[in-house]
């Protein structure tokens, strides 16, 4: 399969840069896979799992807040948070879910509550995804 350049950038650092064969991005209106030669495309991210497939390896990262831009030169994902799933051991994710839960409860108006609820749901989905992933691996 043809490879294409891919960059995953967070405000604090360049998380990933290299040639990959496929990337699955959690877009705001649904997950989408990007292969080489994708049409120019910009999408906002929803919190979720980003999968990088390249050079026989599959890498999964949890991303939140940002957007993806595909153009003839390759794919760039800008995410405010990008953490490899491997680093999100059960305890850390549970903590994040707990924090998000508290955020939801602290929300002062409905709009904020809705927004935070979305984050919480995404975190829970991520937790489920990791669990499923873990089961598949064992």
């Amino acid at each position: 399969m043809a490879n294409f350049p891919f960059e995953l950038v967070s405000p604090e650092k360049l998380v990933y840069a290299g040639a990959v064969s496929e990337v699955v991005v959690p877009g705001a209106e649904g997950e989408f896979g990007v292969l080489a030669g994708h049409a120019p495309f910009v999408s906002v991210l929803k919190p979720g799992v980003l999968t990088i497939k390249g050079e026989g390896k599959v890498q999964k990262l949890f991303v939140r807040g940002g957007f993806a831009e595909a153009n003839p030169q390759g794919l760039t994902v800008l995410a405010e948070t990008a953490v490899p799933l491997a680093d999100l051991s059960g305890g850390k994710l549970a903590q994040m879910i707990k924090d998000a839960q508290e955020d939801v409860e602290d929300a002062r108006d409905d709009a904020t509550r809705l927004k935070r609820q979305t984050v919480l749901d995404a975190l829970k989905t991520t937790a489920a995804a990791i669990e499923a992933d873990g089961r598949a691996a064992h």
Binding site: P11, G27, A28, E29, A39, P40, F41, V42, S43, V44, G65, G66, F67, N71, E80
Partner: peptide
């Protein structure tokens, strides 16, 4: 430098993306 603005597809549409990105850009 990017030039090809017109050929991009946006999801959701441009204004929604802008509404999401501008506050982020401010933070950046």
């Amino acid at each position: 430098a990017e030039g090809a603005a017109a050929t991009y597809e946006y999801e959701p549409d441009e204004n929604e993306i802008l509404a999401d990105l501008l506050p982020r850009n401010l933070a950046v």
